[in-house]
Amino acid sequence: MHPYLRATFWILLYLLLVQAPLFVLLLGPKPAGDGFWFDFSLALGFAATAMMAIMFLLTARFQRATAPFGIDLVYYFHRLAAIGAFVFATIHPLVLFYKEPGLLRVILDGTLPLHLWTGLVSWVALAALMVSSLWRKSLHIHYDAWRVAHVLLALTALLLGVAHIVGVGHYSATFWKTWLWLGIALSCLTAAVRVRLVKPLQLLRRPWRVARVIEERGSSWTLVLRPEGHGGFRYLPGQFAWLTLRSSPFAMREHPFSISSSAATAGEISFTIKELGDFTNRIGEIRVGETAWIDGPYGTFSIDISQAPGYVFVAGGVGIAPIMSMLRTLADRGDRRPLLLFYAYHTWERTTFREELEELRERIDLTVVYVLSEPPADWEGEQGLLREEIFARGLPADRAARECFICGPTPMIAVAEKALARQGIALTHIHSEIFDLV
């Protein structure tokens, strides 16, 4: 099936699932209306809970459902849609407080019945989820602690939300409507169990061993991993995986990293990781022989998915990692298609893989345009931040036929996408990878 058709199917399924509870509650016996604002408020509460439930499915790493979009985009969507769920969950009680001020007094008096307490605590958990996710770095919350808290808060918000709906019983008094909500809660629990228990169990059976730790320019490290007692896995150049080091796969201390090795060679697999905080700052302390666990591969950021007579790559900083995987693979395959790389970095001294890129130019038809924001005094190449005029100068005449791959910080991706589109490259030819998720 065409990727667009598959994507449309999953989007329609998402819309159907997220709306279904509202429709179903209107079927069969139902209470009489209690005024527009009262019922509107309840509908928002149901919608918020349905959205929360779908978030569990979005993040359950179903490879088939996420493949047409790229799992990075699914996580990005999860982040945005969750804001919508939070807005609904906030308006729901506010409308009720406005219409029935007595309710607010009951909360302040501390005489709230249990079925309303569940709703209140559910909202508090959701609010904590929002704050800790949107401002994790500003609040200096460690990524590993955030991961654990995120799962616990999400489960609390959803399960208490469902308990609130079932406890109140308005619109869900019939047996099958109660079971609709309990079924939703069970589906979410199943999705959480799949990611947190079933997947780690599968990983335990397929351990990896650190074979080499290589220091690269620009505070980056390449970890080379070798499969231990199994054949590893096949991946497409440019894909990424979740990597667990120095802890059990059950500990939720996994981190997504791009694979930087060639997909043409079986067995060993490399990740290139920049010291950017938390876990990554200590990556250089990893020793040869340590055990690792890899959940992957994921992602659609790959030349093997988008065939073209030539490619344009845009890398910002360590965003070079998946692009190195593609360049190395093309070199190993003896591919002679024309390749152009725009590579933005701060300084020449810290530009990761610059020596290997020069070597690769002898094996593949590669042109590299370095863009330095802090160039040395004698620098004659492009400088400053990546911008449209740099693309205008560097892009070849056959640009419209090429497929473009952009990887780097999110603001750089936005600038590059816009500039490439203005330079005549169709939006369907522009692919990007988001790695700055939380």
Binding site: I11, A43, G84
Partner: peptide
């Protein structure tokens, strides 16, 4: 483009749910 696509889809699906909530209330309170 991908980011914009995700943003539009999130906004559209949220607005759709908002509209459905209004319809829900209108059906119950004609």
């Amino acid at each position: 483009m991908r980011l914009r696509f995700a943003q539009l889809l999130a906004l559209a699906s949220t607005l759709l749910l908002l509209l459905l909530s209004v319809i829900f209330a209108l059906v119950q309170n004609p």
